[in-house]
Structures are given as C-alpha cells and as structure tokens.
Design a protein around this nucleic acid. Structure first.
Lengths: 105, 105
DNA sequence: AGCGTATATCGTAAAAGTACGATAGACAAA
DNA sequence: TTTGTCTATCGTACTTTTACGATATACGCT
C-alpha cells in the first residue's frame, strides 16, 4: 500500500495556472492587460505614454505576457499592435474560476 | 488640457491583484492553496509529506502566502494549522473575476 | 530539567525578475 | 539610399525568489 497516488497531481493545470498567475504578478502587467481587455482589443506601445517606465522596460513586460501566452503582437508597420490572446485569456479565466470555486462554505 | 487623469489609476486594486497573483505564481503555492481550499478548511505542515521539498522551503512558501494575506496559521500545540483567510480569498476571487469579466466579445 | 516534535529563521548559493540606457533591426517615407 | 520611427534586444546593476541544510524557538511530555 504505497502512497504514490498522493502526489501524482502536480497537474499541468496547476502549472499553467501558476504561469498565468506569475504573468499577472506585477502591477504594470495588470495595467497593460486591463487596457488590452477593456479599452480595445488591440493596442500598441504608446503604453510608453501612459506608463512611466522606460520603453525597454515596457517591452520586457510585454515579452513576459507574450511568453505566458496572454497576448499576441501583430506587426502593423511602423508599429506593433498588441492584442489579448482570447483563447489564453479564457483559459486563464476558467482556471482561476475553478481554483476559487470549490472552497468550503 | 493636461492628461494627468490618464495614469491616475494605478489603483490599489491593481496592486492588490498583483500581490495576490504573485502569491499564486508558483505551482507549489497553487497546490497548497488547492489543498487548503478543497480538502479541509485547515491543514498543517505535513505538506512536507505531500510536497517533495525541504521543510524550510515549504515554510517559506507558506510565509509568502501568509504575507499576501491568503492564509493564516493557528498554533495548535505540537503543530500549526494553516487555514485559508476567507476574506482575502473572496477578495482575490472578486478581483480576478472583475479583471476577466469585461473583455470585449 | 531534559527530550522530542513541529515550525520558523538564518546563512548561503544560484537563478530569475526589474529597471535603465544604448544599440540593433525592420520598414515606410522622403 | 538615407532618414526617421517603432520596437526588440543587449549589457549591466540591483533586488527578489527559490532552494537547501543547519540552527533556533516553542511547547507538550516524561
């Protein structure tokens, strides 16, 4: 009678949720995502005018979000339009929902 | 006609959300929270038997969660019982919900 | 008082994150 | 072709995170 089963579910879902959560774990990135999700489907890097950080820093935050899969960038010549990745966004929504859903009373 | 108002709302909500998200940004902490939210309201550090990490490391993760306000520990003599902080948990739930709620189509 | 258990904290090392300025790349327009 | 604009990437510095073993603290029990 082993207890192998006990820690089997270090599931992909938990890992994916951690990846999404990590990407959300900085106020600037929250702000960017809020802008992308509310204001318009797409946006570009005049985030520089809204967010008081160096352009390179913002670019790094965008990269984090892209690496986590939450946003996508489309080259629209002089600029680049960033959009939410709606599939990933929905997936994140579901994962967070189900994390919070089943808690007792 | 200034544009001061534009970046006024680096709101507390965004910061709080980032704090919660950061706390959720590691699979081990997700796992701990899942255990605390599903299995029983409270739990103690025999997490050590479930999670294949050093006791001190797990203690650090618990500290992260405590610092973020998501859990509380009650001393129950030989051991310590960790519980979800339900208020914070609900707050987190609401903040994530409202982040994901308003996205276009 | 001394022992054992449970947990936190310290010290440390390696890795990752955050921010900046400077530079490089792509591409439209002149 | 050259110029200008927009963005990514590089190099760097500093901080934070993650993990470990070792040690300290708290407390019930003998």
């Amino acid at each position: 009678m082993e207890r192998t089963a006990v820690k089997l579910d270090y599931s992909l879902q938990e890992q994916q949720l951690a990846i999404f959560a990590k990407a959300l774990g900085h106020p600037v990135r929250i702000q960017i995502l809020k802008i992308l999700s509310e204001q318009a489907c797409c946006f570009n890097g005049d985030l520089t005018e809204i967010i008081p950080l160096a352009q390179s820093t913002i670019s790094q935050h965008l990269k984090s979000l892209k690496d986590a899969g939450l946003i996508q960038g489309k080259i629209m010549p002089p600029k680049i339009r960033y959009c939410l990745n709606k599939e990933a966004w929905s997936e994140a929504q579901q994962l967070f929902e189900s994390l919070f859903k089943n808690h007792i009373s």
